[in-house]
Design a protein around this nucleic acid. Structure first.
Length: 640
RNA sequence: GCUGUCAUAGCUCAGGGGUAGAGCACCUCAUUGGUAAUGAGGAGGUCGAGGGUUCAAUUCCCUCUGACAGCACCA
């Protein structure tokens, strides 16, 4: 006699075991038509499942966002059926719902190509039109293994073997086709609806391990209705429109070429942007008590052996040799050992701690070719790196100080929102549990003091200590990990750094590795995508352009430009033999934030007509006014 | 690194076994204009590199390099 409690609090009694379908029907025909699945005491289930005990039940309909994973998962099943119908002999593996859609990994000798997608999608629409019911069956383990092996589905058989004992082996059938699946599913293939699209093919390792066979993965996106699908496709276009590689070319910021894979050729405008970011960071660092240093690019192998990099990071290091000397050098992949060497130069007193050593350190890392991505993931990059040498007691206050600075910097760059991940002790690790307890506790209390809430990222810390990772959210909701803060007890030990305590003895400092923007290359890529090339004025590579209407006004335009320049603004002139319409258009397309239009009238009256990017209004101003307004607006946030 | 796709003018792209085309950008000339394209003309390519097949390869095949997407990687 189960009593079913519904979300509105009402309770219905049933004479015996009931299925979700029956409950929905007893509530009303509308719900019976709309219900796709149900949540029983919080667990998602097929409508066909029987409920025997008192439960809370909530029905999932298409209006419910919880329908999305169901639609996507069902679509993955339908795709697998379509693929096996069209390409017999293809083995199925797994096919989950993911953010925005689904995928299914197949094993076959000839991987799928994009050309195969239309046929598969068409077949899927047939299967959906047939509206075959999904039915759930529980099979004995051996029977399931035997069944899939007999079909040559060795991946499925392996999955079943690896399921924990006691877990029910469930199989879902849709028409003639069936698949091992935990479920749940909707009622029938027709519930998927038409709002899906196959997107791309890709390789993916079986169980995510590169030692395993490469499978052929097909990605699809699926939504509740066409409007949602269109919105998603539009969002993809939006991301493409903001692509820093495209904007970097259009705005003439930088380029990359084959002879320097993974390294950036910064053009004048891009380098101006870079310098703006760098000098801003330099001022902020000075303000927060950092001392800037500069250390070598090429260092002897011996140092890297001592630091542990030769052992742990060798595969990512560029090695250099010279003919006349029997030496092996390496381009530095990190700055930390160099900073320890500076710290060690001469005797350090406890009075100098915390010692905050900063460097815009140019590093090289041999990244796998497939990891490279525009200027976001490169092989030569510059970090806003710093190492804080301090005592254990100082960890908490230094963390607070760092988070204060980071918050300020992110806000200045227009990122109001960021999240924090706390990565605690990994295995294997260096250092005793006692030291880890202290380090983690210090970091935790520091987070509390700094008002930072974080998500735990268990076991993902560095081998030498726990770390915080700071993740930005950009204008279109994408996350970017930039900042990092790591507590290190190991490197000072390995490189034998010490300071003199108040008692005149030697003690090991703790090292805090930290960065805010991470790498300038990556951060600038994020900035470009965040604002879609429309930089806030202080960052804009060209802050204002002066466009003349007639050649008679060219001299005046030059005067205007000179005035702006001496006010510290970055100015371009457009004195071409073109109509003002063409100049406005070209300058607008190149995303120059301000255009000053000058003709005979302005030249006579010593005025300018200001036009802002994105607007079509003009503002008549005296030259002095215009310079002063723009100068104020272009002031970097830390100098306001 | 792995799988797939791709590589043609500065950019965006079309073409295709008989040594190449458009638009924009560029250059020249005319035009001097009032807020998102003035007109005319011109120049510009070893079709990513190397090899093979062929009478003939930019086109077909192989290798390499690089880019793109995903996977793996990302102290």
């Amino acid at each position: 006699m189960p009593a079913i409690t519904l979300p509105d609090g009402s309770v219905r009694d049933y004479p015996g075991a009931v299925t979700g379908t029956m409950i929905a029907a007893s509530i009303g025909p509308g719900l019976a038509r709309a219900a796709l699945a149900m949540e029983v005491d919080g667990a998602l289930m097929d409508l066909s499942r029987e409920i025997e005990t008192d439960s809370h039940v909530r029905f999932i309909t298409r209006k419910d966002a919880a329908a999305l994973p169901l639609i996507r998962h069902d679509a993955a099943h339908v795709m697998a059926e379509a693929v096996q119908a069209l390409y017999p002999g293809t083995q199925v593996t797994i096919g989950p719902a993911i953010e925005n859609g689904f995928y299914y990994d197949f094993f076959r000798n000839d991987p799928f190509t994009p050309d195969d997608l239309p046929a598969i999608e068409a077949k899927m629409r047939e299967i959906i039109a047939a509206n075959a019911p999904f039915t759930r069956e529980v099979w004995p383990r051996d029977a399931a293994i035997g069944f899939f092996e007999a079909r040559g589905e060795r991946f499925k058989a392996e999955l079943i073997r690896d399921l924990p004992d006691g877990e029910a082996i469930t199989v879902y059938r849709q028409g003639e086709w069936l698949d091992l699946c935990r479920g749940p599913h909707m009622r029938a293939t027709g519930d998927i609806g038409p709002a899906f699209k196959l997107m791309k093919v890709a390789g993916a390792y079986w169980r995510g391990d590169h030692r395993n066979p490469m499978l052929s993965r097909i990605y699809g996106t699926a939504w509740r209705d066409q409007k949602e699908l269109d919105a998603h496709l539009h969002q993809l276009e939006e991301a493409e429109r903001r692509d820093h590689r495209k904007l970097g070319r259009q705005m003439d910021l930088f380029h990359m070429q084959d002879e320097a894979v993974g390294s950036v050729f910064w053009h004048e405008k891009g380098w101006r942007l870079y310098r703006t970011v760098e000098s801003y960071m330099r001022r902020r660092q000075e303000q927060f008590g950092y001392r800037e240093v500069r250390t070598p690019q090429l260092l002897d192998r011996a140092l890297w052996e001592k630091s542990g990099h030769w052992e742990n990071f060798r595969a990512n290091m560029f090695i250099a040799e010279v003919e006349d000397e029997d030496k092996i050098l390496a381009l530095k992949p990190m700055n930390c050992p160099c900073h320890v060497e500076i710290f060690k130069h001469g005797l350090r007193s406890y009075r100098e701690l915390p010692l905050r050593m900063a460097e815009f350190g140019a590093c090289h890392r041999y990244e796998p070719s497939g990891a490279l991505h525009g200027i976001m993931r490169v092989r030569a990059f510059t970090q806003d790196d710093a190492h804080i040498f301090c005592t254990e007691d100082q960890i908490a206050s230094e963390t607070v100080r760092f988070v204060d600075m980071l918050r300020l910097v992110y806000a200045d760059f227009g990122f109001a929102e960021f999240t924090v991940k706390f990565s605690d002790r990994p295995t294997p690790r260096a250092g005793s549990d006692d030291v880890w307890d202290r380090a983690e506790a210090a970091l935790q209390s520091a987070c509390a003091q700094a008002g930072v809430s974080y998500a735990l990222n268990p076991g993902e810390g560095a081998f030498y200590g726990p770390k915080l990772e700071f993740v930005l959210r950009d204008a279109i909701g994408r996350d970017w990990q930039c900042g990092t803060f790591q507590v290190d007890f190991v490197l000072p030990e390995r490189l034998d750094a010490s300071y003199i305590t108040p008692e005149s003895s030697r003690a090991r400092p703790v090292m805090l590795h930290r960065a805010i923007v991470g790498s300038f290359e990556r951060f600038i890529g994020i900035l470009i995508e965040n604002c879609a090339g429309r930089f806030p004025l202080w960052l804009a590579p060209t802050q204002v352009a002066v466009a003349s209407i007639v050649t008679d006004a060219n001299d005046y335009a030059e005067t205007v430009a000179a005035n702006l320049k001496s006010a510290g603004l970055s100015v371009a002139t457009d004195l071409r033999n073109e109509k003002i319409n063409a100049k406005i258009r070209d300058l607008s397309l190149s995303l120059v934030p301000n255009i000053l239009v000058v003709g005979r009238r302005e030249a006579e009256q010593n005025t300018v007509a200001l036009r802002r990017l994105g607007g079509d209004a003009q503002e008549m101003l005296s030259l002095d006014e215009a310079v002063s307004i723009l100068k104020t607006e272009a002031t970097t946030p830390d100098l306001r």
